[in-house]
């Protein structure tokens, strides 16, 4: 079964009086466990595609399904449930909850899933250890570097055992050392947990590290290369 299926999806945004075709009849299939990078210039539709795959936005035309579940048949509550249990997000600007510690940020999603307190703590710490943040559990986002914050975001996205991680330019705000290290971590997670990773990126290093590179241009897929 495909982890993600996108069929003939189009999305038009209206900016004032101008209509912008963000996606134009895009079709794509991603298998479970793939490590896919979607590359392309700004405005090519990478982020829009990720948002649609994550159920954060809905297409104007076409169909999307994740793990066999067709979005068009799902209510907003069902989509929220799907995001909570099967999809993890990593954003370009980390998006951590500033009043929570690293551990609490990771733990919170488990609470939303109804996991008990003891198990929550255990799993959150183990995941922070996995992303290289051992001993930094009690630090708030403001006390962590950009790279560390993005690791917390990765740990948060992985801790709920999702099958798919959608990462929107995760290395864009990191220096090359931190970017490479984070990429390495995500690669390990992909191999260790067989989690499907789909990135949008400008970063050559990410493109290099991916096992499949999809190139987008003007809202359409211009190339799809499996390495």
């Amino acid at each position: 079964m495909n982890a993600v299926t996108v069929s003939d999806v189009s999305k038009i945004y209206t900016q004032g009086d101008v209509k912008v075709m963000a996606l134009n009849k895009v079709s794509l299939k991603v298998d479970a466990g793939e490590f896919v990078a979607i590359a392309g210039p700004s405005g090519s539709g990478k982020t829009t595609l990720l948002n649609l795959i994550g159920g954060l936005d809905s297409p104007d035309t076409g169909h999307i399904s994740v793990n066999g579940k067709a979005f068009e048949k799902m209510s907003s509550g069902d989509l929220a449930e799907l995001r909570l249990t099967q999809i993890g997000f990593v954003f370009q600007s980390y998006n951590l909850i500033p009043v929570f510690t690293a551990e609490e940020n990771v733990e919170y999603i488990l609470q939303l899933q109804g996991v008990g307190k003891k198990e929550r703590k255990q799993r959150a710490r183990a995941m922070l250890d996995d992303v290289g943040l051992e001993g930094k559990y009690d630090r708030k986002p403001s006390q962590l570097s950009g790279g560390q914050q993005q690791r917390v975001a990765v740990a948060r996205s992985l801790v709920s055992n999702p099958t798919i991680i959608l990462a929107d330019e995760p290395t864009a705000n990191l220096d090359s050392v931190n970017g490479e290290s984070l990429l390495q971590t995500m690669r390990e997670m992909n191999e260790k947990h067989n989690v499907t990773f789909i990135f949008s990126t400008h970063d050559a290093m990410v493109m290099e590290a991916s096992k499949r590179l999809i190139t987008m241009k003007d809202g359409a897929i211009a190339g799809d290369q499996v390495k």
């Binding site: 909570l84 998006n95 909850i97």
Partner: peptide, 16 residues
């Protein structure tokens, strides 16, 4: 606003 967007993105229901 951004934080609420994030919370919804990670699966938080509007009622929560």
């Amino acid at each position: 606003m951004r934080e609420f967007g994030l919370l919804k993105a990670i699966g938080m229901r509007p009622s929560w």
